[in-house]
């Protein structure tokens, strides 16, 4: 990470802390906000968070490492959660997870080498009458067969190009505004 990017991250994190530190029990909302903004909680933001809340770095690290959701490393472009819980097991999630791991070539908590997809486990998405279920971003999908899984993954790998193009356009516009 270059110096500008690091400064930028620290700036964003300080801003988030300033926004939320008045809340009782502010650490969880702050960690969520940082992860929403950056995709993960970089190690070098831990001292900043600790200082902002007047707690120890160990306490911050302890909380980050306790919860499955919080990550200390960047995820892939998309994160897919496969529900591993009983109601989905009854509908074939064990087959689905094997299929997903084989086709993506990764285990849980890993990201595909191209940086596209991170695979995670979920223990219940609350969609238990229409399993097996998976979550992609904030979208939950029901009755996901291996074929449906492949189709959803295909969509991820094609749709973002459009978004990327649009994003690139927006970035160029922003650059020219700044320029």
């Amino acid at each position: 990470m270059n110096i500008t990017a690091t400064t930028d991250v620290q700036h964003k994190v300080r801003h988030i802390i300033a926004d939320l530190q008045h809340k009782p029990g502010a650490l969880m909302p702050i960690l969520h906000a940082i992860q929403d903004e950056l995709g993960y909680i970089p190690d070098d933001t831990v001292p900043t968070i600790a200082e902002g809340l007047q707690i120890t770095r160990a306490e911050v690290h302890g909380v980050i490492s306790f919860y499955h959701d919080f990550r200390a490393t960047a995820p892939g472009k998309h994160t897919i959660h496969i529900c591993r819980a009983e109601a989905c097991q009854a509908r074939g999630c064990r087959t689905l997870e094997r299929h997903a791991q084989q086709t993506l070539g990764v285990d849980y908590h890993q990201t595909t080498p191209d940086g596209d997809i991170t695979l995670e486990a979920a223990y219940c998405l609350g969609n238990c009458a229409t399993g097996p279920s998976i979550r992609i971003g904030d979208d939950i999908h029901g009755r996901v067969t291996p074929a449906r899984f492949d189709a959803l993954v295909d969509q991820l790998q094609t749709v973002p190009l459009v978004i990327q193009a649009a994003q690139a356009g927006a970035d160029r516009k922003e650059d020219s505004n700044h320029g």
């Binding site: 029990g25 969880m28 809340l53 306490e59 919860y67 499955h68 959701d69």
Partner: peptide, 20 residues
């Protein structure tokens, strides 16, 4: 919450709510 089944237990939930 942040993906922890145990936080459905009321005292864990309270600790989590307090930022622990």
């Amino acid at each position: 919450g942040a993906g922890a089944y145990i936080c459905g237990e009321e005292t864990s939930l309270l600790d989590s709510l307090e930022g622990k």
